[in-house]
């Protein structure tokens, strides 16, 4: 199985970290992984995104134009990437932060009140983990315990942040039936 995902939002929302944590978890699980960030002028104050591919077999192109799943954290990302979801794929978006929701009917559209849930958790920085939780539940592309292991790696020096991030993942997962 191969999951070709795109994470997009404003610079600073943690979209690059989301993709990276997923890539770490995939590697821990013994899968092939590739993480390709957008880098360059658009990252300063503008939009940032990264492609993360997790696969059971070797990954050919790290650059793709259609995705199995898009996770969008802001309006420009929904507008730009709605059309890039493969038919039957998933578009997961932060519905607490978006005025014009996606309209396609040939894909699974999953609204998650990400920003609102992050405020409830008293740390707006965990928005990305709420969204990643929904992504994991929907795609089953890596086991949650491997995401936990990846968090231990990423938060090497900040272990005290891990429980909050795990809580945020769980909140996100509850949005997917």
């Amino acid at each position: 199985m191969t999951q070709e995902a795109l994470f997009a939002g404003f610079g600073g929302q943690g979209v690059l970290s989301m993709g990276q944590i997923l890539a770490y978890a995939g590697m821990i699980e013994g899968k092939e992984v590739c993480w390709m960030p957008s880098y360059g002028p658009e990252m300063r104050g503008g939009t940032a995104n990264c492609i993360t591919i997790v696969s059971d077999s070797s990954i050919s192109s790290p650059i793709i134009s259609m995705y199995d799943t898009v996770v969008a954290l802001n309006q420009p990302s929904v507008d730009k990437f709605e059309s890039r979801v493969k038919k039957g794929g998933n578009l997961i978006y932060d519905s607490a932060n978006i005025l014009n929701p996606p309209t396609r009917t040939d894909i699974n559209i999953i609204p998650v009140q990400g920003s609102e849930e992050a405020i409830k958790l008293q740390n707006t920085k965990v928005l990305n983990m709420v969204m990643l939780g929904a992504f994991l539940k929907k795609t089953n592309c890596v086991a949650v315990e491997n995401i936990h292991k990846a968090l231990e790696k990423v938060f090497e020096r900040y272990q005290k942040l891990i429980p909050l991030n795990i809580k945020a993942l769980e909140v996100g997962m509850s949005y997917v039936k």
Partner: peptide
Amino acid sequence: DGAIGQMMEK
């Protein structure tokens, strides 16, 4: 190239 330099893989 820039992509090979910037991307992460195992």
